[in-house]
Each structure stands twice: as C-alpha cells, then as structure tokens.
C-alpha cells in the first residue's frame, strides 16, 4: 500500500519528466551536439560534461555519438566526460529528484557528479595515454 502511495506521489512528475525527455530527443540531434565542441581539451571536457548532462536516452546512444565525435578528432577527455555525464547527470530529472530528496541533497549530488565527470575524464585520458 505504501509502495502504491509512493507511486501515486511521483506519477505526475514521472510522466512530466518522460514528456520532457521525448521533447529533448526530438530537438537535440547529434549534429546539434557536435557543433558545440571547439577543439580545446579543457573547454571540450567541460562542454562534454554539460552536453552529456542535458542529453537523454539509452547509454548506447552516447557511445554512438561519442564514437563519431572521437573519429572527428574530439579529445578522449571530452568524450569520456560526455559519456559519464550522459548516464550520471539528468538536468531533465532535477525537479523530480529535488521534490523527492530535497534541494540540498540534489544540489550536492549533482555538483559532485559534474566535478567527478571531469576528474574521471582526465584520470581516464591520462591512464590511457600512459598505457598506450
């Protein structure tokens, strides 16, 4: 019964979130994403995190886009941040997360996620360079 109550509480927000995800999938294409990268490792890693954070869809879509971007010369740092942010950050889900967990928890979690997407991207990029 409590579980059904929980579902009732999140149902409108869940449906709204799914609706927004549908809109994002229509309006944000891989071409739109590619246009945002400039070629600089630092700014591209930051852009990768932000773009991954606002993007939505199955993780495999981020691999396909990431693979294409890599072939076109975008750095592995940026691609890693993009793939990580794609699955860990959810700008679209923020209102739902905040309404359930509270603003403070949501803020702390998401700020940490942004920072760690970039830190892990650099750690992965440097490790791969060392191993190569």
């Amino acid at each position: 019964m409590k579980a059904v109550q929980s579902l009732y509480t999140i149902a409108p927000m869940l449906l709204a979130t799914i609706g927004v995800v549908g809109l994002f999938q229509t309006f944000i294409s891989p071409e739109t994403l590619h246009a945002l990268f400039s070629g600089s490792i630092w700014s591209d890693t930051f852009v990768g995190t932000l773009v991954g954070g606002v993007s939505v869809g199955q993780p495999v879509i981020s691999y396909v886009i990431g693979g294409e971007l890599l072939e076109e010369g975008i750095s592995l740092y940026a691609i890693t941040a993009f793939i990580l942010a794609w699955v860990t950050l959810g700008v679209v889900q923020l209102p739902l997360e905040a309404s359930i967990f509270g603003a403070r928890f949501t803020l702390v979690r998401n700020v940490l996620t942004v920072v760690f997407a970039m830190l892990i991207a650099f750690a992965v990029g440097m490790t791969i360079s060392l191993l190569a």
Partner: peptide, 10 residues
C-alpha cells in the same frame, strides 16, 4: 509538496 509540484510540472 512533491505531488503539487508534480501536477504543476505535468
């Protein structure tokens, strides 16, 4: 609060 905000968002 979550429920009101949810309906508004929807």
């Amino acid at each position: 609060r979550a429920n009101y905000f949810g309906w508004f968002f929807l």
